[in-house]
Amino acid sequence: MRLSHRLAPHLAALRALLVFTVLLGLAYPLALVAVGRLPGLDVRADGSLITVEGAAVGSELIGQSFTDAAGTPLPHYFQSRPSAAGTGYDPTATAAGNLGPESVVDTLTADPRESTPSLLTQVCARSKAAGELDGVDGRRPYCTADGVGAVLAVFRAHGLTGPVTRVVSVNQAAPATPFVTAYEGVPVEPAQPGVDYVAAGGLVTPVWGDAPAVPAVPADAVTAGGSGLDPHISPAYARLQVARVARERGADPARVRSLVAAHTTGRALGFLGEPGVNVVTLNLALDREFPLG
């Protein structure tokens, strides 16, 4: 007896569901698990865990923050790049900061702890801190000396044109002293928390300042990675930190540089990406070679 033309499509769909459930829901995952158990692949499949005296202390694939409880960098360790994943390098909250190059104006509130820094101010603050930590010039273009974005809201008589009538340093809250005293002959005033000077008609005007064209602090020291989990920094950022780490550990800088070289990976397939230094494995090697007293 032929099936009803209404029932036949449903039975065909049910058969397809069962077949694909077995293939894609059972066979395929089990095959991948079996491949992950092959010698040479099993370590990476388990997360490339790093163990010290039998205890897991991290993963070669996930970065860590080498700071104290207050978030202050520990000077005897190489520092990782910033992370926007949760509170930092949280695998359950992997994410980028989702801020772009147009994020240059902070949201200032009466309570500084509740203010929201722009990407520019975050970069400026990190560069200033990194410069102070490693004893180099932390200045960057479009940054003030106190580590915020050097951005003015410029008001003109006719909106976009005409003489300047008012200028506000939008990222420096009163009673701060503006990073420039005047703009086109008009005194610069600090920002008042809670005021949106851009919505009020101010033209956003970043100011380069007197920073060098090529900052001493590399870009990866002041910007987070896309995943927030990358354990690598650039060789340039690692070289910047060698003198401090060697001094703090009482080690020969040449030997510390050798450790950096040993933990530097090249481009994938010889041409993809950039060389990187794995900070997690490097710091573990430091503890083995130059233990703290």
Rank of each mutant, 00 (worst) to 15 (best):
D106M: 05
L284F: 01
L41K: 10
V204T: 12
V280N: 04
A246E: 07
E289H: 13
V123K: 01
V204M: 05
V52E: 14
Q122V: 02
R156F: 06
E289P: 05
G36Y: 10
V198A: 09
G25H: 11
T87N: 11
A12N: 06
V222L: 01
A8K: 15
N171D: 12
D90R: 12
A200W: 00
V57C: 04
Q192T: 15
L108R: 00
L3P: 12
V22T: 14
T121Q: 02
A176P: 00
S227K: 08
P206I: 01
L74G: 03
H76Q: 13
F155A: 01
R15C: 12
R166D: 14
T94I: 04
A96R: 15
A129G: 05
V188I: 09
A96L: 05
T116R: 10
V35H: 11
V186D: 02
R15S: 13
R249K: 11
A13E: 10
P73F: 02
F155D: 00
L3A: 13
V123F: 00
L14G: 14
A200Q: 15
G58P: 12
Q172H: 03
L26Y: 12
G276W: 08
V19S: 08
H263S: 08
V22D: 02
P39D: 14
V279Q: 07
A95P: 03
R288F: 11
L26H: 08
V260W: 08
S227M: 13
C124S: 11
R244D: 03
R37F: 06
V35P: 05
E289Y: 09
L152F: 00
A153H: 03
A13M: 14
G88F: 12
D252A: 09
S234G: 11
A13G: 07
G40T: 12
G225F: 02
G276L: 14
R249G: 09
S115R: 04
A216S: 14
P178W: 00
V154C: 01
V217T: 01
C124D: 06
D68M: 07
G131W: 00
Y89H: 06
G209E: 06
A93R: 15
G36D: 11
S83D: 08
S227E: 10
W208R: 08
S59W: 12
V151N: 06
E53R: 15
P253W: 10
G228V: 07
Q172L: 06
G36A: 08
D134W: 05
L286S: 06
N171K: 09
A182H: 07
E102Y: 09
P29E: 09
S83T: 07
F66V: 04
P101N: 15
N171Q: 12
